[in-house]
């Protein structure tokens, strides 16, 4: 599948995008400082493992699909591994050396992050989850 198709698939029919809000999830709200992207990410942590997650909000195709791909990659992972995954993605965003194969589908943003402001769109969900894991 082409990168564009993967992004569109996650944008238009993400399995993790749900409108319902339940109380037993921890909410991560993240708002772009440069545009109107606004995501709410809901996660459930158990014994150091992210056992479930979903998201909603109003955001562009890049921020939305990036959030969906992030959740695909971190579900059932240990917090330490999630932090490494986020760090690796951040390195790609900052044009630093990174491990391409570890990013799985998130590699689809490799070129897009160089298009104007879209780096911040792709990184937005990572920014939210990173901050949450650092503070909790």
């Amino acid at each position: 599948m082409e990168n564009r198709e993967i992004i569109l698939k996650h944008y238009t029919s993400s399995p993790y995008k749900k409108d319902e809000v339940t109380n037993d999830y921890q909410k991560i709200e993240v708002q772009s400082s440069t545009c109107v992207d606004h995501l709410n990410i809901y996660i459930k942590l158990k014994d150091g493992v992210l056992v479930d997650g979903y998201f909603n909000g109003e955001a562009c195709s890049i921020a939305t699909s990036s959030c969906s791909i992030l959740l695909t990659n971190v579900l059932n992972k240990r917090v330490e591994d999630i932090k490494k995954f986020i760090a690796n993605f951040e390195k790609m965003c900052n044009d630093e050396p990174f491990v391409e194969e570890d990013l799985q589908e998130a590699i689809v943003f490799k070129d897009i992050i160089h298009q104007g402001n879209r780096k911040s769109c792709a990184f937005l969900p990572y920014q939210g989850l990173k901050k949450f894991l650092e503070e909790n």
């Binding site: 545009c35 109107v36 109003e58 955001a59 562009c60 195709s61 298009q115 104007g116 769109c121």
Partner: peptide
């Protein structure tokens, strides 16, 4: 289509519009 996605599309053709609130 989300407004920002349209703005990015227009930007590819050097058309500058604002998206957001």
């Amino acid at each position: 289509i989300f407004s920002q996605d349209v703005a990015y599309y227009l930007n590819k053709y050097k058309v500058c519009v604002r998206a957001g609130n």
